[in-house]
Computed example of a mutant assay.
Amino acid sequence: MSGEIECYRGVVHPWLCDAMGHMTTRHYIAMFDDGSYHLLAALGFGPDMLARRIGFADVNLNTSFKAELAAGDLIVVSGRVEKIGGKSMITRYTMRNLASGDVAADLVATTVQFDLSARRAIEVLPEIRANALRLFPEAEIAAGSMD
């Protein structure tokens, strides 16, 4: 979709399913989490920032389950930045069934830029902000942190 980037592709394996034959909620979250690393990398987050002890921390996750996934289903997760504040950003991830195109789930995350040594939120780095606005020009810019 326009305004999103692909963050993850996978398959629903039988061992990811519950007794009713559907992928369990914990595995949706794991796939969204894997996708978040790819979105953050697209924004410029990488090993150099970890070396500087700068990271990200999710402070709120809101998941909506919309369609069931079963063993053998191929999935793709896309993501985008929706809003950037002073110390945080809101991202949205959408998981689709590749064969049908149906949305299986959405996850909206509030994530703060984080000083890993001081263990506190810090201002979103200028290069992260610039990359987010370049990739997602429709993202809303908020005056301050959204947490």
Rank of each mutant, 00 (worst) to 15 (best):
G3K: 09
E4I: 10
I5Q: 10
R9E: 08
R9S: 04
G10E: 01
V12W: 02
H13M: 11
P14C: 05
P14T: 02
L16I: 11
C17W: 01
C17D: 01
A19K: 07
H22V: 05
T25R: 06
T25L: 15
H27V: 12
Y28C: 10
Y28I: 10
A30L: 13
A30E: 14
M31D: 09
D33R: 06
D33V: 09
D33H: 10
D34F: 08
G35M: 01
L40K: 13
A42L: 01
G44C: 02
M49D: 14
L50E: 14
R53L: 10
I54V: 15
F56Q: 03
A57K: 12
V59N: 04
V59E: 07
S64W: 05
F65S: 05
A70G: 13
G72M: 01
G72F: 03
I75T: 03
V76E: 12
V76M: 13
S78K: 05
R80Q: 02
R80M: 01
G86L: 04
K87I: 02
K87V: 06
K87F: 08
T91Y: 00
T94E: 13
N97C: 05
V103Y: 00
V103W: 00
A105T: 08
A105R: 15
D106V: 15
L107C: 09
V108R: 15
A109R: 08
T111K: 00
V112C: 12
V112E: 03
Q113D: 11
F114Q: 06
D115L: 12
S117G: 11
A118S: 06
R119K: 09
V124E: 15
P126V: 03
P126L: 03
A130I: 01
A132M: 07
A132Q: 15
L133W: 11
